[in-house]
């Protein structure tokens, strides 16, 4: 039953998060904003459109959105939601989790290069450059959690904050939470790192890579991106609000509320911060790596 709810939430809820973020931003700007379900309408609209494919592209261009979506969804199966277990869990699956994210990224960038457009090549280069810095954040964060829990399976490791409370643990968890929040913003190309709304090719990272995709393929990419937000948000929630009441229904409710809270937080950050200059983005990511690394030093010292 819990596994079923996990699947339903993971597949159905992500576009709602985008809606919540946009609504929060609209409230800050004093606008009414698009309806909460706008992302669902967008996806349906895109699914009914026809596809235009450039003659220079190869099969990678079509495969990429599918592979990206699948790999993110598989990564989502490894992450437990709230206090419940993950559908798939085995020792060492944190490596698989990190590399599923990397496979998705690899295919997105490969498809961007496949179009032969110089703009998309630039976007791909930026995406990969920043990924070099965002992956250590994830690994250090997971390392800290693995150290606290003494387990190498994501299912147990992410539940470590639930029963933590030892001397240095909370201090490291605070650091890891800061690091993971920056990771969430960077991986999902949200504002201090990248602006999801901009359509100026020279400054974009993620959006510029998918310029040539259209119709259902673009829909798959948008859907995959929203699932990524959901999955990394679920990882963050484990560290930020470890909560277990005992009643399954209440726990699911709390989880959904927390997830919406993360979306609101992202919206608030986007409304109150300006985008960083491209050359300043590595500072932020390195700071996040340092926080997670400190968290680890605190544990082992």
């Amino acid at each position: 039953m819990n596994m079923f709810i996990h699947l339903v939430l993971m597949l159905a809820m992500p576009p709602l998060l985008l809606g919540v973020i946009n609504k929060t931003k609209a409230l800050f700007a004093g606008r009414k904003g698009p309806p909460l379900l706008q992302s669902y309408y967008d996806l349906i609209k895109l699914a009914r459109k026809s596809v235009v494919i450039s003659r220079t592209t190869t099969w990678i261009f079509i495969a990429a959105p599918v592979v990206t979506l699948t790999s993110i969804a598989m990564a989502g199966l490894l992450v437990p939601l709230g206090p419940f277990g993950a559908p798939v869990s085995f020792t060492g699956d944190l490596i698989l989790f990190a590399y599923l994210l990397a496979v998705g990224r690899f295919f997105t960038t490969a498809a961007a290069l496949d179009t032969g457009s110089s703009f998309e090549g630039m976007g791909a280069a930026r995406e990969v450059t920043f990924a070099c810095l965002s992956e250590p954040i994830l690994f250090f964060a997971l390392l800290v959690l693995a150290r606290i829990s003494g387990s190498l399976a994501l299912g147990d490791l992410l539940h470590a904050p639930l029963d933590a409370g030892g001397q240095g643990d909370i201090a490291s968890l605070v650091l890891v939470a800061i690091g993971l929040f920056i990771l969430l913003l960077a991986e999902n190309s949200r504002i201090p790192v990248d602006d999801p709304n901009t359509h100026l090719e020279l400054t974009m990272i993620h959006e510029v890579m998918v310029l040539d995709h259209s119709g259902p393929l673009l829909g798959l990419i948008l859907y995959g991106a929203s699932i990524k937000l959901f999955v990394i948000g679920a990882v963050l929630l484990h560290v930020l609000f470890p909560f277990q009441s005992g009643s399954a229904l209440l726990d699911w409710g709390v989880f959904v509320a927390e997830m919406l809270g993360v979306a609101v937080a992202v919206g608030v950050v986007e409304s109150t911060m300006a985008r960083l200059q491209m050359r300043h983005v590595p500072y932020l990511l390195i700071a996040a790596i340092l926080f997670c690394a400190f968290g680890f030093v605190l544990l082992v010292r």
């Binding site: 643990d169 909370i170 201090a171």
Partner: peptide, 14 residues
Amino acid sequence: MNSPLNALLVVVLA
């Protein structure tokens, strides 16, 4: 007693 203090201190470090 020390844990919340340590949490505040790491925020100061950050």
